[in-house]
Amino acid sequence: MKTVRRRRPLSRARIVRTSMIYSVAACFVLWILFPIWYTISSSFTEPSKIGVRPTPFWPANPTLDNYKIVLGIPIRDKDCTPGVDIGNCQTAASNVSVNKIVDTMLNSFYVASTVVVITLIISTIAAYSLSRYRFVGSNFFLNFTILSRIVPGLVLVAPIFIFLRVLDLLNTPWALIISYTSFTLPLAIIILKNYFDQISVDLEEAAALDGAGRILTLRLIILPVAVPGLIAAGVLVFLESWSEFFFALVLTDSYTVPPLLAGFLSMQTFNWTLLSAATVIAIIPPVLLTMIFQKYIVTALASGTGK
């Protein structure tokens, strides 16, 4: 009687190891999904079903009504008994200001994209200069930039608040664009400087031999090579601007998404199912961006900030 020898005998150690790996993995999945799952499932739950105890894992009759209300899409009248099903009534919902979410997200996009453009233009040339040239105070400037990542926004907020009030910019998108630049600029400079440091100087020397000027070299030779660094910096700046809450709370009247959601929380009668739908919609853009550009961002963060 011959038995075919298994290639990988199931040794005791291997079984222990494999079961360890899968149990830790299961714990991790639970740790990540458990809290956020409730928000997701609530966003598909009818408001009247929210009080069921003990809380179910799965919405009983999944509905898209919360999303429709939040996005301002009319829902059929028969679902709505005014005065009873508050959450299902469009008229009631419009008082609750959740359906501002679309406008507010557009505001957030506007602020974040403008911050990205301004930050990238200023930081690219500054980072290139720090990587290639020495000038009086260049070391000091670099250290100042790195150190400034530790300075809390709370230290800056009062003078910035007063500046903006004097300039009559409070409550405008510019209040946020200006104040966000104070922390996105150092971040982008550090990431891009690290990136330029990795690009060989040979390229520039070759270009100089061919008679290209310094600005032309930067534009035509260096920038195309630096695209991954620019993507990483741009995405991180976008995410920071999209997520920022403190300045947006203090300097504007719920102009971007985080303070809008926070304002919704502080209301006397608010509806968790609607807030859940709004929350899910609000995290779709940053989640997509992070998923798509994950590699660039992680590389930049892991190699960069600690220098």
Binding site: I36, Y38, R53, S243, F245, W272, L275
Partner: peptide, 25 residues
């Protein structure tokens, strides 16, 4: 990526709801 991409404020909202004393999960 999911928690990491969430703005801090939204992390707070998610957990407030998750831990809710009446009907939290």
């Amino acid at each position: 990526v999911l928690p990491w991409a969430c703005p801090w404020l939204i992390v707070g909202i998610i957990w407030k709801w998750f831990l809710d004393g009446n009907i939290g999960l």
